[in-house]
Structure formats: C-alpha cells, structure tokens
C-alpha cells in the first residue's frame, strides 16, 4: 500500500473561526478509510479542501506517485487528476436520465470540443451498463433521475463516481436516509470499490462504520483526535469525552 494522498499541517479559518487546525492525514492506495467526528469537526471542510473548493491558509496537500501539489489546481483539474467526490445531499442532475448522468461521468475527454463532437461508443455503452448493474439501476437507465428514490439517487451518485474511475473516492454520508437493506448494499459497493482504489467515507453512523470494518480517523475541532481500528478509537478516553460531551 503506497501513499496516495498526504495532507500535512493544513489550517483554514473562516472569519477567525478555525475550521481546520493543523490537520495531517495520509491515505494509501488501495485503502478504505472512515472519518468520523462530531458536528463542526471539519469533516466537510476537509473534503472541500482536498477537492479545491476551499483554499487552505497554510499546509501542503501532496497527491499521487509524482507528488503533485493539489494547491492551486482548480476543481475540475483535481477531479481529472483522479479524485471523485460524493456530496452529503445527493446531487444528481434530476432533469436528465440516469444514462445521461452516467455518460457525463464516464472517463472520457472533458474538453468542450471533444464533448461537442462526442460519438456514443459501444465501449461507453457497455461501461454504463456495467456500472448500472453494479449500483442496481439497470432497469432505470432511461428514467429521469429526478424520479428515483432517495437511496437510488445515492447509488446513482456513487455510480457516477465509479464511472469517473477515480483513484480516490471521497464519500460524504452515503448512508443518510437509507433503509437497512439499502445500507447493506451501499456497504458492499464501497468495500468492492476499495479493493482497487482509495475510498474515504465520512459518516456519522457508528453502526455503518463498524460494518465497513476499516481504519477510522476521528476528527475534532479541525484536527485528528485519534486514528486506528474502530474498537481502538472508541476505547480512547478523549474520544469518549468528545462524543459524550457534546
């Protein structure tokens, strides 16, 4: 397992409030990692920083085998470098079909002219079918994605992530609002994905994290409080204080 992403000494503040405070995290490849923490611990901001939405005040973010710095790259460049992100609220393009959503996410040239003259290929269609099968939406390919259920939208979004074929998946609360059956399916999806790439899951739900059965990082007030297996971190006295104290 080689290091894919190295975040070191990153801080960012909003109007004097330190959302991220000297945070350092390393993610390997392949790896499944869960990040937990109380509200306001800086989980979402952490993702914002990695994906280029928020610029950190200090710190370094090094990516990949060539040790590229992600600072100064735009969101789309970072996405093209191989980082995919799923938002907390499912954000699929509701006006368009499931197929169109997946087609947009497929790993193809992203320039406007190549998109303008894009030809639908056999390989592309096959890949869409494959992903649809993976996320269980084969029958819904022609449906408008706005008509999907909440859980299906979450899967579609994970499917779009897979279609991007990223090396690192950032997944924000994938299980929110799901039935237990849907959760099981989601867990399987993520675990399968983590066999070939790095997957970082931000989650509130301890039960879901337990099921992922992976290394856990606890964030608190913008920095790492504890790291290790779930059992290890839940035994940690400060972690207990933080969770009970809230």
């Amino acid at each position: 397992m080689s290091t894919l992403l190295e975040v070191s000494g990153v801080s960012v503040s909003f109007d004097g409030f330190r959302a991220i405070n000297n945070l350092s995290i390393q993610i390997g490849e392949p790896e499944l990692r869960a990040i937990i923490g109380p509200n306001g611990a800086g989980k979402t901001t952490f993702m914002d920083i990695i994906t280029g939405k928020t610029r950190p005040d200090t710190g370094r973010i090094i990516w990949g085998d060539q040790n590229i710095s992600l600072l100064g790259m735009s969101e789309s460049q970072i996405a093209m470098a191989g980082i995919g992100r799923k938002f907390q609220k499912p954000t699929v393009f509701e006006d368009q079909t499931v197929r169109a959503n997946l087609a947009m996410a497929l790993r193809n040239p992203r320039g406007p002219f190549s998109v303008l003259f894009d030809q639908q290929t056999r390989a592309g269609a096959d890949r869409i079918a494959e992903i649809a099968a993976e996320i269980g939406l084969t029958d819904s390919l022609a449906r408008t994605s706005g008509a999907l259920s909440h859980g299906q939208k979450q899967w579609l979004e994970i499917g779009m992530l897979l279609a991007q074929d990223p090396r690192l998946l950032l997944v924000d609360e994938p299980a929110a609002g799901m039935t237990s059956q849907e959760r099981a399916h989601t867990t399987d999806l993520l675990k399968r994905a983590a066999k070939t790439r790095a997957v970082v899951v931000v989650e509130h739900d301890m039960e879901f994290v337990r099921r992922l059965d992976c290394k856990v990082t606890v964030l608190h007030e913008g920095s790492v409080l504890a790291e290790g297996s779930l059992d290890h971190v839940t035994a940690n006295q400060t972690v207990i204080d933080v969770y009970l104290g809230r």
Binding site: E75, S76, A79, G84, R85, F93, M104, A105, R110, P112
Partner: peptide, 8 residues
C-alpha cells in the same frame, strides 16, 4: 457538481 465531475 459539474466541476467535481472534472469538467472545466
């Protein structure tokens, strides 16, 4: 969201 899909 389109940006995070890698489109400029």
């Amino acid at each position: 969201r389109v940006r995070f899909l890698g489109y400029h």
